[in-house]
Design a protein around this nucleic acid. Sequence first.
DNA 1: GATCATAGTCGTCTGCCTGACGATAAACAC
DNA 2: GTGTTTATCGTCAGGCAGACGACTATGATC
Lengths: 252, 252
Amino acid sequence: MPYDPSAFPPFAVTVDLVVLTVRRHALCALAVRRGEAPFQGRWALPGGFVRADEDLAQAAARELAEETGLRAHEPAAPVQDNGAHLEQLATYGDPERDPRMRVVSVAHLALAPDLPAPRAGGDASNARWAPVEELLQRGGHARDGEPVAPLAFDHAQILADGVERARSKIEYSSLATAFCPSEFTVGELRRVYEAVWGVALDPRNFHRKVTGTPGFLVPTGGTTTRQGGRPAQLFRAGGATLLNPPMLRPEV
Amino acid sequence: MPYDPSAFPPFAVTVDLVVLTVRRHALCALAVRRGEAPFQGRWALPGGFVRADEDLAQAAARELAEETGLRAHEPAAPVQDNGAHLEQLATYGDPERDPRMRVVSVAHLALAPDLPAPRAGGDASNARWAPVEELLQRGGHARDGEPVAPLAFDHAQILADGVERARSKIEYSSLATAFCPSEFTVGELRRVYEAVWGVALDPRNFHRKVTGTPGFLVPTGGTTTRQGGRPAQLFRAGGATLLNPPMLRPEV
DNA sequence: GATCATAGTCGTCTGCCTGACGATAAACAC
DNA sequence: GTGTTTATCGTCAGGCAGACGACTATGATC
């Protein structure tokens, strides 16, 4: 296989973002409305071209900041401030995935706490948080009756892969805290798991598990009643990133 | 963020392969010797450009066949014949990773049973199976005393990521059978785990675990004494792809 | 052929973890 | 105060893994 550096087919390389958050007990993803063909007017994942002098992670962090204002954390750093967790998801390169040209998209997964409001270059009407189940159903209607077209390009597949990554990764890591504000209660963390997995968990067993795992949660000393009921202890994410043994999803 | 389809920086897109196998109780990776600059004469992972009309998985499968003669399995299909498991690993796109031009490499991970002999376009002297620990040590010397240079480009990082993926994935999936021939014994499967993880496992507990997991192993009825000792039952990989509960690596 | 080394297979026991669920505690709404 | 909500602590039984004993069936060696 002789090698000729000048004889390679040129590709466009983009990053697409699966930005997930938990709003009102539902796992939601950030979607932006496309302003041009192809798929004009349809919803898509945010993303854009990788610049000539930019690393893939840098490009993803830049796009994330442009779309949400969020800063990205360093990959291995614990979740501390209001930044988002950002990691590479997978790369999609079907020759037909973009009708205009050959585009390879390096999808990234971002997990963020509930945010005030999305912004897409300042235009809020062209960006929204939508429940992932609504974005993933093929056609059909949202809860408010508005008809929903499938996501543009292969973004439904990318979103599905990102959701599955998030669902599986909170099993064996402390990543679920990325969905929470810097201080949170055990109940709030449990509701994150319930929203991401779409199941109900036993509050008592969940409490035992997360408080019994060394390094997972660090009590701040404060309490809150923002969820109603008896005051709950506030915690911060601890240094542990891996949960061993993992917290397995209920079978079904 | 105005969009101009003609104004994107061109990238070269390649696939690089982390091909792993188990030889003589050691986890080994396929390495090829570079014939040209940069890194001329150094060992590298096999790989090549993605063609203009080719999917990423197709390109990886083609490179795998060119380098080893192996056919790749469909992602979700159980391991049956002597083909290899192939899956996307991660994508590497640092602007400086190739001094000649901007190259984004979509690395893939392949797991194969022990093979007769490597071939690199027919030239066996430029391809070899090397223990991953030898390829990953920075400089230093192989066991035969020959000095070893680090892998070319960022291939040490890619290899390390691929090894870690394999190590973690055999915990919760039946992927370890991809390292075995179509029929194998429990002891042979155990030696795969031991080589990949670099630990010793209790034969009795391992036997109980793998034979007790429904769908993991299917007895063929035959026996073999190719490992010496008492004849062992032969098994084939069952339909189950996920191990639940997983088989966790020993802590140490 | 007896003995030994090797590898495979079946059991036992103990401790840890989880799921199911009872009970109590501390806030707020009325 | 009563009821409602949420948090937190306990109890108990079953499942599973680690440690390890015992037995089996081969080939190798004397």
